[in-house]
Amino acid sequence: MAKTQRKFWYVGVGLLLSTALLVQWRSASRVPLTDFRVLPLRHHIEGASLCPWRQPEADLHAFFPTATRYDTQSPILSSLLVDIKERLGRWLTPDENPLYLHRVYRNQQPLGTILVRRVKGEYGAIEVVLAVDEQGKVRGLKLQRLREPEPIAQTLRSPHWLAAFEGQTADSHWRLGEAVPEVRAAAQPSAQAIVEGVRSSLILLDVIRHNKT
């Protein structure tokens, strides 16, 4: 009798311990499912700095008065990276990679392209709207936003300086004092950033156009 009782005792304790171990193992091995509470919003993937086109209608009217419509294309640049590097003299930055081309049409006939780009001015961002015709020549340039002190802003927004960009191409001599006129010393860093931004945009557009043909 005592022997049977001891057996029951051992079986009981054994069962209890096995259950406990099973529960512990199951809980430890369970991989937590995606839990929105554990994923703070601050760990979201950082988006690229896409520059918005703030006044499309006004800009279309100014650069392509006969335009009837535009559409936006986003070409894949990955296969063109080597060509672009050769022309630019540097690799594309992550900010430049998602490129948006606003293709402008008069009915079905393409008139040109508008590119919008943010460049780093000395005192803040400068947003550039660049209109290019079908031959790759600059049709017009507009600074849609800038945060420079007034004297510098006046220089950069002067019609004389902006008009100097018209007719230039990706192959122009993109230096201050050559393709575009020199500006006063205080405005030079921001002017240089604009020139570099326009040059990069034209080269990107040119590489895409040549690869299409």
Binding site: R118, Y123, R147, E148, E150
Partner: peptide, 28 residues
């Protein structure tokens, strides 16, 4: 604003030029 730590930052409305001390990590 295309700013990084150490850059200048101008406020056109107040005429104040500030220096960027730092940029906060994205917090949502």
């Amino acid at each position: 604003e295309a700013r990084e730590p150490g850059d200048k930052f101008y406020s056109p409305e107040t005429g104040q030029t500030l220096r960027v001390a730092g940029v906060l990590e994205r917090s949502g």
